[in-house]
Simulated assay, not measured.
Amino acid sequence: MIFKVFYQESVTEVPVREKTKTLFVSGESVRDVLSRIGKLGINVEYVQEVKGAHLDYEQQNNEDFKVLEI
C-alpha cells in the first residue's frame, strides 16, 4: 500500500500549515510507515492511505511523486 505522509522538517518548531510537506511511503499499515520513517527526524502530522482514484490523481498532478521504500 502507498501512504501519503504530511510532515514538518523540524521537530523543534511549532507546526505551521504553510510549511507542511508531503512524501509518499510504501508500507503495510500506518504503524509500519511510522516505524519506518521514525529515524528520519521529521515531525509527522498525519499519515493517509492513498489508493484508487486518489492515487491516480496524485501520480498525474504531483510532479514530485516518488514512493520511498524504506
Rank of each mutant, 00 (worst) to 15 (best):
T20S: 02
E45C: 11
K21M: 03
D32L: 04
V25M: 08
V14Q: 13
L34D: 15
Y57V: 01
G27M: 06
G27K: 03
T20P: 00
H54D: 15
I37H: 11
Q59L: 14
P15T: 00
E18L: 05
V14I: 09
L55N: 01
V16S: 02
R36T: 09
S29R: 08
Q60C: 08
V47K: 04
V50M: 06
E13F: 02
V30A: 01
L23R: 00
G38W: 06
R31A: 15
V25E: 04
R31I: 13
G41M: 15
S35R: 13
P15R: 00
K21F: 09
L55P: 02
V47M: 08
G38E: 02
T12D: 11
I37L: 11
E45H: 11
K39F: 14
Q48F: 13
R36D: 08
Y46W: 13
L55K: 02
E45N: 15
Y57P: 02
E63R: 13
E58S: 03
G41R: 08
G41T: 12
G27I: 10
V47R: 01
A53V: 09
P15W: 00
D56R: 12
K21D: 01
N43Q: 12
E49V: 11
L40K: 09
Y46S: 11
I42S: 04
G41I: 11
K39I: 10
D56S: 13
E49M: 10
D64S: 15
